[in-house]
Design a protein around this nucleic acid. Structure first.
Lengths: 290, 290
DNA sequence: CCCATAATCCCAAATCATGAGATAAACCCT
DNA sequence: AGGGTTTATCTCATGATTTGGGATTATGGG
C-alpha cells in the first residue's frame, strides 16, 4: 500500500486517459529507467537528487540506475554522481549512421506533395551548390524540369537560400559573389538579395520568385539535425499561375511544418541550442555532408 | 506458471551466479527494454524477429517496444519494423558534449602513472602538432620537462606518432617532410621512419627512442572515439636508464590497456568498424578536435 | 575519532508485468 | 477482387517481479 502514494501512473482514477497520462500500461519499470536517463541527461546527478527528481525511493532509483550503469548507459563516479555513459554514445553513432536524410524525409515529402499538389524537392549543400537528392512530382499540368542528382545555384533557388539561411552576412556576400563571378545571369542585385535573405532567415523559410527559372516559384525551408545545423532543405515548386503571393505565404506554414517534422526525426530539438551556441559566426563555407 | 518457460534469468538454478548471468535483480523489465534497443541497433527489425531474437513473446516485445517508440527511443514504420529513434540521437549528442577527453582520461592517466611510476601524458593532434592536454609526473628522480599546453613535433615523439597511426603512407610522408622543411633536426631518415611507423601501426602503439630529446624514451598508444577515429593519445615517458627495450615492450601492454579503457569510455567499440570502413584512405590532414 | 551523508543490501507484501490466445489490420499472391 | 497468411494490437487472470521501508555499511569532513 505504501507504493500508491508515489506512483504517478495508474493510481486513482481507473478511467481518465486524457492529456498524455498513462503510456502503454505494463512498463512502469522501463519507463522509470528512461526517466532516469532523461534526468541524468540534463546534468549529472547524485543518487539522492536523482531519486528526488523522479519521485522514487532511494532503493528503487539505486537499483534501476545500477542496472543502467551495468549496461553502460550511465557512468557512475563517486562524489560526482551519474552521467550519461558510453553505450549511449555508441547508440547515437549507430543511429546517425542508419538515419539518412533522404530516407527519413521521404514520407514527409510525399505528404507535402499530396497536400499541396505541387512538386516537392529535397536537397543538400554540396560544393557551394544545391544538390537535389529527391523529388516528388505534383499533379499539375506543368511539370517542373529538375532531376535527382542535379545541381542548382544557391542564390537564385528557394532550396539554395534555405540551405544557407544560417550563414553570416559576410558568407552570404561570398556566395552571391561566387556565383556572380561564375557569370550566371541574375536580375536581383546584391543589396535587395541581402535584404530578402535577412527577412527569410528571420522567418525560417525562403522563396524563389521566378529568379532561377521564368514562371517558376517556390517556397523552401531548412532541415536541421541534432546539432542544430542545417543539413538540408525542402521546397515546394510550381508554375507562377498557381503561386500567387497569398498562396506562397500560406505554403510557408505547410513547408515549415514538414521541414520541422523531418528535423525532429533527425534529433533536432528547438529547445536545446546545439551548435549555435558554440560556433555562431565563423564556420560553414562549403559542404555539409561528409 | 506460463512465464517460467521463457524467462531466461532466474529460472532453473536458484544459485548459479557465475559468468555475467543475473544482473542486479529486480530489473527484468528494464533489462529487456535495453535488450530490445540492443537488438534494434544491429539492424532494423520487425516485431516477430525482434521477439524471437530476444526470446520474448510477441505480446511482451510489442508492449516494451511500444513504450520505447512512445519515448522516441525507437522509430516504428509499417513494413520496415523498428529502428533507433531520434531520442537516442539527442542523448548521444548530449553525451558527446559532456564527455570531454581530458576529463575521461584523468583517472586512467593517474592509474597508469601509479602503476608505472613514470610520467604520463595526454595529447591531441592540432595544426599538425601534438598538443599536450594533461600530464602526471612520475616519482623518479629525473623529471620530464614538458608542460600542459605545449606543442611537440609529430614525427619524433611517441605521442605524435600515435596520433597519426591511422594515416596513409602518403600522409606519413607529408608529416615527415613538413617537419623536415621546418628545419627541425632529426636523425632518423625517412625510410627507417616509415618502416617503424608501419610496425607501430600494425601493433597499435608507438615508441620514442630518444628521438625527440636525448636520454628520454617513451611508449604511446592512440585513443579513439565512437567513430573509431584517433582523437588523442597517451604516453609513458621516462629517462632511458629506466626504459630498456624489455621494459618498453612490457609497457606497450600497460599503455594500450589504459588507452583502450579511455577509448571505451568515449564509446569506441572495436567490433563495429566505424569510420575505417567508410573513408579508409584519404582524409585526415590536420586538426582532430573542433 | 566521531558524526553526517551517501551508497548498498534485505525481505515480506502486493503491484505490476507477463504471455496465451483472441481479434483486427495489412499484405500478397493468384 | 478474394482468400489465405503474416503481422499488429488488445484483453485478462495469474503470480512472478518489483517495490520501498529501513537496516547496514562505506565515505568524507572537521
Amino acid at each position: 500500500m505504501a507504493r500508491v502514494s508515489k506512483t504517478k501512473s495508474a493510481d486513482g482514477l481507473p478511467e481518465g486517459g486524457e492529456e498524455k497520462g498513462r503510456s502503454l500500461a505494463g512498463t512502469q519499470t522501463l519507463v522509470r529507467g528512461l526517466e532516469i536517463i532523461d534526468a541524468v541527461s540534463l546534468r549529472p546527478l547524485g543518487l539522492p537528487e536523482l531519486a528526488e527528481s523522479i519521485g522514487l525511493t532511494r532503493s528503487t532509483a539505486h537499483r534501476l540506475a545500477g542496472t543502467l550503469v551495468e549496461h553502460r548507459y550511465l557512468n557512475f563516479v563517486r562524489g560526482m554522481g551519474y552521467s550519461l555513459g558510453p553505450r549511449i554514445l555508441e547508440l547515437g553513432y549507430l543511429t546517425a549512421r542508419q538515419t539518412s536524410l533522404p530516407r527519413v524525409a521521404r514520407e514527409h515529402l510525399e505528404q507535402l506533395a499530396a497536400r499541396t499538389g505541387d512538386t516537392v524537392h529535397l536537397g543538400v549543400l554540396e560544393d557551394g551548390q544545391a544538390l537535389y537528392l529527391d523529388k516528388i512530382s505534383g499533379n499539375r499540368r506543368v511539370e517542373i524540369s529538375s532531376r535527382i542528382g542535379e545541381r542548382q545555384p544557391l542564390r537564385s533557388t528557394g532550396l539554395g537560400k534555405a540551405l544557407i539561411l544560417d550563414a553570416s552576412e559576410a558568407q552570404w556576400r561570398e556566395y552571391y559573389d561566387l556565383e556572380a563571378r561564375q557569370g550566371r545571369g541574375y536580375d536581383v542585385d546584391l543589396q535587395l538579395w541581402l535584404r530578402r535573405m535577412r527577412e527569410y532567415a528571420k522567418n525560417g523559410y525562403a522563396f524563389d520568385l521566378e529568379e532561377n527559372e521564368d514562371r517558376i516559384r517556390c517556397v523552401a525551408a531548412p532541415v536541421r539535425d541534432v546539432s542544430g545545423r542545417i543539413v538540408g532543405a525542402i521546397s515546394v515548386s510550381s508554375a507562377a499561375q498557381y503561386m500567387d503571393d497569398m498562396r506562397m505565404h500560406g505554403l510557408t506554414f505547410e513547408v515549415r511544418r514538414a521541414s520541422e517534422a523531418i528535423s525532429s526525426e533527425l534529433g533536432y530539438n528547438p529547445g536545446v541550442d546545439g551548435a549555435a551556441a558554440e560556433g555562431g559566426k565563423r564556420r560553414r563555407t562549403a559542404s555539409t555532408r561528409d
